[in-house]
Computed example of a mutant assay.
Amino acid sequence: MPDPTLDIASLGGHTMGTQWSARLVLPRHRDLHPLHAGIQAQLDGVVAQMSTWEPGSDISRFNRAAAGSWHVLPEGFFQVLETAVDVARRSDGAFDPSIGPLVALWGFGAHARQPRLPSPEALAAVAARCGWQRLQLRAESRQALQPGGLELDLSAIAKGFGVDQASRWLRAAGITAALVEVGGELHGYGSKPDGQPWRVLVEPGPDEDALDAPPRVLALDGLAVATSGDRWHHHDIDGQRYSHTLDPRSARPVPHATAAVTVIAPTAMEADAWATVLTVMGAAEGLAFATTHDLAARFVSRSAEGIVETLSPAFVRHLDASA
């Protein structure tokens, strides 16, 4: 039976160049202003630590630091960086938090130049400054080494961390059920007043043709979902599309990027990072990797016949559970 003492409230705001929203289950007439302020404060904290768009952020100061210097990082920043390095290692370099200079060279990110094809010499010089293996961490003291010229870019994982931070804060504030979203990445926990879990529709893909794909509805209770792909950011140079997703292994934009990759994971930070990894790998390599590593992933790809959808076994299990 629905609980008549509870209601669903909706909040929203702006962060990280996009919008955030939250749906909360709480007693009727509860003051929403402290909850809105608390969520915004959590997201603002992520920006202050990890935004390369903010010259005074912790990540910007690290990127400018002298070679050979060690830096104590805020807890959230260090946690994200540890996870990013772990994903880089497990994906054999398909994810790399040190590709800031490459992002800018190809015309994306906070320090982007005018989009144009970089020369082979410029590409080689910038690629030499990158490499997650150059990053050394001291977990016991939350320190990171700036080896010299290393520029971190956590845009493929920090937004998901922001979602998780907001969810954790809401739990601590006594909110027993919530669905939090930042720029299309979501985390849900608890049940709605009618006892049902939060259900979300997976984005169909970038093209109208993708609407012909079967609708995919997921139940999120202690789960997160993130989608990556070339729908949202790309450049057209000399009539060719260049994805904003870079392959760190080649130092180039992903060729023929998968239109959309959706990943389900326990945290939005993990879903965010692995969606990027699988976008870099592409549908064939990515599906094999997701199957081997039991990642719940959905690939929407373009082909001569139209939109093609492929699902990993773990993703299919989530669909069965959501039915």
Results as ranks from 00 to 15, higher is better:
Met1Gly: 14
Pro2Val: 10
Asp3Ala: 05
Leu6His: 08
Ile8Thr: 07
Gly12Trp: 06
Thr15Phe: 15
Thr18Val: 01
Gln19Met: 15
Ala22Val: 01
Val25Arg: 09
His36Pro: 08
Gly38Gln: 12
Gly38Tyr: 09
Gly38Glu: 07
Leu43Glu: 04
Leu43Tyr: 00
Gln49Asn: 06
Thr52Glu: 10
Gly56Gln: 10
Asp58Ala: 15
Arg61Ser: 07
Phe62Leu: 13
Phe62Ser: 12
Arg64Ile: 03
Arg64Ala: 08
Ala65Val: 01
Val72Glu: 15
Leu73Phe: 05
Glu75Thr: 09
Glu75Ser: 10
Glu75Cys: 09
Phe78Pro: 06
Thr83Tyr: 06
Val85Cys: 13
Val85Gln: 07
Asp96Phe: 07
Asp96His: 01
Gly100Pro: 14
Ala104Thr: 09
Gly109Pro: 12
Gln114Glu: 11
Leu117Tyr: 04
Pro118Ala: 01
Pro118Cys: 00
Ala122Pro: 02
Leu123Asp: 09
Ala125Gly: 06
Ala127Gln: 05
Gln136Trp: 04
Gln136Val: 02
Leu137Arg: 02
Arg138Asp: 11
Ala139Lys: 13
Pro147His: 03
Gly149Cys: 05
Leu152Ile: 06
Lys159Thr: 04
Leu170Val: 05
Arg171Ile: 13
Ala172Thr: 15
Ala173Ser: 15
Thr176Leu: 11
Val180Thr: 09
Gly188Lys: 04
Tyr189Ser: 00
Gly190Asn: 06
Pro193Asn: 01
Val200Cys: 05
Val202Gly: 14
Glu203Gln: 15
Ala210Val: 12
Ala210Ile: 11
Ala213Phe: 02
Pro214Tyr: 06
Leu218Glu: 08
Ala219Cys: 11
Ala224Ser: 10
Thr227Asp: 07
His233Tyr: 10
Asp238Thr: 11
Arg241Gln: 13
Arg241Leu: 13
His244Lys: 04
Thr245Trp: 08
Leu246Ala: 03
Arg249Cys: 15
Arg252Pro: 11
Arg252Gln: 14
Pro253Gln: 05
Thr262His: 08
Val263Gln: 04
Ala265Pro: 15
Pro266Val: 05
Met269Gln: 12
Glu270Val: 10
Ala284Arg: 11
Thr291Ala: 01
Thr291Asp: 07
Asp294Glu: 08
Ala296Asn: 02
Ala297Cys: 02
Arg298Asp: 12
Val300Phe: 12
Ser301His: 06
Arg302Cys: 03
Arg302Trp: 12
Glu309His: 15
Glu309Met: 13
Thr310Trp: 04
Thr310Pro: 14
Leu311Phe: 01
Ala314Arg: 08
Arg317Ser: 10
His318Asp: 02
Ser322Phe: 03
